[in-house]
């Protein structure tokens, strides 16, 4: 499956199937700090990702508060 990461934008290829929470653990990404988007909607941590999925891991943390 294709994994799209942001800030900066980059892509990874990983073998599926795999659950979302396992993917985040493998990439050492805190699940509180991202959304996982497949197609045009979100998926929960227990969702199974298949080998031909394209998934965006979108960071949600913004830091401009003065």
């Amino acid at each position: 499956m294709k994994i799209v990461l942001r800030n900066p934008r980059r892509e990874l290829d990983m073998a599926g199937p795999m659950r979302v929470h396992a993917l985040l653990e493998r990439l050492e990404i805190n699940r509180e700090a991202v959304l996982v988007i497949r197609g045009d909607t979100l998926v929960t941590g227990d969702a199974q990702l298949s080998d031909d999925d394209e998934v965006e891991i979108r960071p949600v943390v913004s830091g401009g508060v003065a």
């Binding site: 942001r6 959304l35 979100l42 979108r58 960071p59 943390v61 913004s62 830091g63 401009g64 508060v65």
Partner: peptide
């Protein structure tokens, strides 16, 4: 902020996903 981002995705609102280049590495983050 995970909820506000999810709100935008699910409501079909396009927003600036990139982080402000001047905020990178600040104490707040």
């Amino acid at each position: 902020e995970r909820e506000t981002a999810a709100y935008c995705v699910l409501a079909g609102i396009d927003y600036q996903v990139e982080e402000c280049p001047m905020a990178a590495g600040n104490r707040h983050l």
